[in-house]
Amino acid sequence: MTDRELPIPDFDHVPLGNLAEHLVPLDRDQLGVLLEHETAHGGRLPVLELLRHRIEALDAGAEPKGSVPADLPEVSGGTPAPAEVSPATAGPKINPPSQGVPTNPAQPRR
């Protein structure tokens, strides 16, 4: 099954903080598809727990509400990362601590 066939577009890229709200519109069968996909591909425990809790809620009488947008704003567009580090994108220059070299604090500086 491709990502396009999943009930949530770009499911693997939806941030965990937004995932719960995207599960509310789905029925039990759609959640089962996502649970099967996540188990086979990512196996991310927080995602599996969210899916299982939503399935339990539906089994307890909750109803799907709303609809999943075709294009989720949090996974599309955005500013692409720079291809390479330049002086404009580099972090600040730091000096090693006085007690030693940062990669080996036990070794004195020269």
Rank of each mutant, 00 (worst) to 15 (best):
G42E: 05
V33E: 09
R109Q: 06
H53L: 11
G100Y: 08
P9D: 07
R110N: 11
H13L: 10
P92D: 15
T89Y: 02
P7H: 03
T2R: 08
E74N: 14
V75Q: 11
R44W: 00
A106C: 10
P96T: 06
P105W: 06
V101E: 12
G43D: 00
P69C: 13
A60T: 04
A81Y: 04
P69N: 11
P73A: 06
R109V: 03
I8L: 03
Q99T: 09
P64A: 00
R54T: 01
P80L: 04
V75S: 15
V75W: 05
Q107P: 04
D3C: 10
K93W: 14
N104F: 06
G91V: 10
H22E: 07
N18Q: 15
Q30C: 09
P87W: 14
A57W: 01
V68W: 04
V47E: 00
P82F: 05
H53C: 07
V68A: 13
T89C: 03
P87V: 13
L31I: 01
L45E: 00
V47I: 02
A70K: 15
G32A: 07
E21T: 07
I8M: 03
G77K: 10
R109W: 01
G42A: 10
Q99F: 12
P92F: 10
V14N: 03
T89W: 05
L45Y: 00
R52M: 09
F11S: 02
T39V: 09
S76Q: 14
P105N: 12
L16T: 15
T2G: 08
L6F: 03
L45R: 01
E38C: 03
E74W: 03
V33M: 07
E49Q: 02
I55H: 06
P7T: 06
H13I: 02
I94W: 08
I55N: 13
P96C: 09
S67R: 15
T79L: 14
G66N: 12
A62Y: 06
T39S: 07
E36F: 04
H22L: 14
H41M: 12
L19V: 01
R54W: 01
E21Q: 12
P97R: 05
A81W: 04
P73S: 05
V68D: 04
T2K: 11
E63R: 14
M1D: 12
E49G: 01
I94P: 06
R54N: 00
G43K: 00
N95Y: 09
S98V: 13
A20K: 11
I94V: 12
I8N: 01
K65P: 05
K93H: 13
L16F: 13
S76D: 09
I55E: 11
E36K: 04
V85F: 06
T79F: 08
V68M: 07
R4S: 12
V24L: 05
T39F: 08
A57C: 02
G42I: 10
S86H: 08
R110S: 15
T79V: 14
T89M: 06
L34D: 02
S67M: 12
H22M: 07
S67P: 05
